[in-house]
Simulated assay, not measured.
Amino acid sequence: MKRLGIFVFYDKYGTVDEYVEYLIAELKKVLNELIIVVNGEVDKEGELILRKYSDQLYIRKNIGLDAGAYADVIVNLLGRDKLTQYDELVLCNDTFYGPFISFAEIFDSMANERCDFWGLDCIKRDFLSYIIMYFCVFRGDLLKSGDLFNYFRDNILFKVNEMADAFALFQVGLYYTLTQSGYKSGVYTYSNGYFSKRSPDICFFKYNLPIWKKKFFVKDNYNEEICHNLLDYLEMGNIYKVNLIQKNVKRIYGIDIAQKEYCGETKLLDQPEVKYSVPQITYDDIDNFVSKNTQLYIYGGGNFARSTAFVFSDKIKNFCGFIVSDEKQSSLTDIWGYPVIKASQVPPNSSIIVALNFEHSVEVLSQLGRDANIFYFWNLD
């Protein structure tokens, strides 16, 4: 077994905190070779830490987010022929704390899983399903055939410029393309649609997700009670050195987490159920609409809209572009070469797929109303 890892590091100030060192040290144990990519800058002390664990350190401009970094390494640094020399390719970034069990245990658990690629968790949303790409493993024929290389070269390199691109091309698009090509996906655990960035305690205690997303500590996600409950459990169980989390959280998010006395029991806290939203339509629903409408716009410029455009790019006979609301301030004039226009500029009687979340779809419904040539992602009755 010859296993290559590509780890992407990004920090606004170029600082390599201890949680990153712990993460790459654990990752290194299951790899034959590790390439560490710095998106942007790293300070001298941090560079020494990264070089300690990497077989090759690649420092690049922060172009294309982590997806662009992976594509740069796969296409320009490795190349197709070298990629075929590995049995497994591991992609991992620094957007989470952990792992809370060893990677060796995780890989042992997945060793007999009959799949071509797998991740730690996934989202199930019909044609918008995907493996969450903070950690993913690709195997065997997927590397040998050149299919993975070709996808990164053709659909990610130079095409990912912002988060919505990464979602559509790197998560949904990659998953869709590979599964449509006959490759089978797998997953270490399924958190049933819960966010690790919103409900890390549910993901860990109930579904055994062995990581904690850093975005939990941004203002709109942070919950002090959940934080202490999970931190205390990790500390008292000698599962993870919580000071690694505390130091990074204080530096990045300005939250000073003081340890509280552990109560001696673990329980899930009562909290609102917050899950990934799941549009109330299927691939077949959209496919049927597309087959009946030749000249078509997609309302939206975010995750759902771009994913829909990618997945149905070979089905839409004449894709006219993306629509944004008149109130939306956007400097975008095009997405992937397709025009972005204001709602007031849409020609009368145009066919439109409204690829927005529920709340924004309700707003659009009040403007466009219902018609046979307008398709909504949600049941808005």
Score class of each variant (00 low, 15 high):
N93C: 10
N93S: 13
D94G: 06
D94H: 01
D94R: 00
D94L: 02
D94K: 01
D94N: 07
T95L: 10
T95A: 15
T95R: 12
T95E: 10
T95I: 07
T95V: 11
T95N: 15
T95W: 05
F96S: 03
F96C: 03
F96V: 15
F96Q: 00
F96A: 03
Y97P: 07
Y97K: 00
G98K: 04
G98I: 00
G98R: 00
G98E: 00
P99C: 08
P99G: 13
P99Y: 04
F100K: 04
F100T: 07
F100S: 06
I101H: 00
I101A: 04
S102G: 11
S102V: 09
F103M: 02
F103D: 01
F103C: 02
F103V: 00
A104S: 15
A104K: 14
A104W: 05
A104P: 00
A104C: 06
A104L: 14
E105F: 09
E105G: 06
E105H: 04
E105T: 09
E105I: 07
I106W: 00
I106T: 01
I106P: 02
I106Q: 00
F107N: 09
F107S: 08
F107H: 13
F107Y: 15
D108P: 01
D108V: 10
D108Q: 04
D108T: 06
D108Y: 05
D108K: 06
D108A: 07
S109F: 13
S109C: 08
S109T: 15
M110A: 11
M110G: 05
M110V: 12
M110I: 07
M110H: 08
M110N: 10
A111R: 14
A111E: 14
A111W: 08
N112W: 06
E113V: 12
R114M: 01
R114Q: 06
R114P: 02
C115G: 08
C115A: 15
C115N: 15
C115I: 10
D116Q: 00
F117G: 07
F117H: 05
F117C: 04
F117T: 08
F117I: 08
F117K: 03
W118L: 02
W118R: 02
W118D: 05
W118P: 08
W118V: 05
W118C: 10
G119Q: 02
G119E: 01
L120K: 03
L120C: 07
L120S: 04
L120M: 10
D121W: 01
D121L: 01
D121I: 03
C122V: 12
C122H: 11
C122G: 12
C122K: 14
I123L: 10
I123W: 07
I123V: 15
I123Q: 08
K124N: 15
K124S: 14
R125K: 12
R125P: 01
R125S: 13
R125G: 12
D126K: 08
D126W: 11
D126N: 14
D126Q: 10
D126Y: 06
D126T: 07
F127W: 01
F127P: 03
F127I: 14
F127Y: 11
L128G: 03
L128I: 00
S129C: 09
S129V: 09
S129F: 03
S129W: 04
S129K: 05
S129N: 06
Y130Q: 07
Y130E: 09
Y130I: 02
I131D: 02
I131P: 10
I131K: 11
I131E: 04
I132P: 12
I132E: 14
M133F: 13
M133T: 15
Y134W: 13
Y134C: 10
Y134K: 03
Y134L: 10
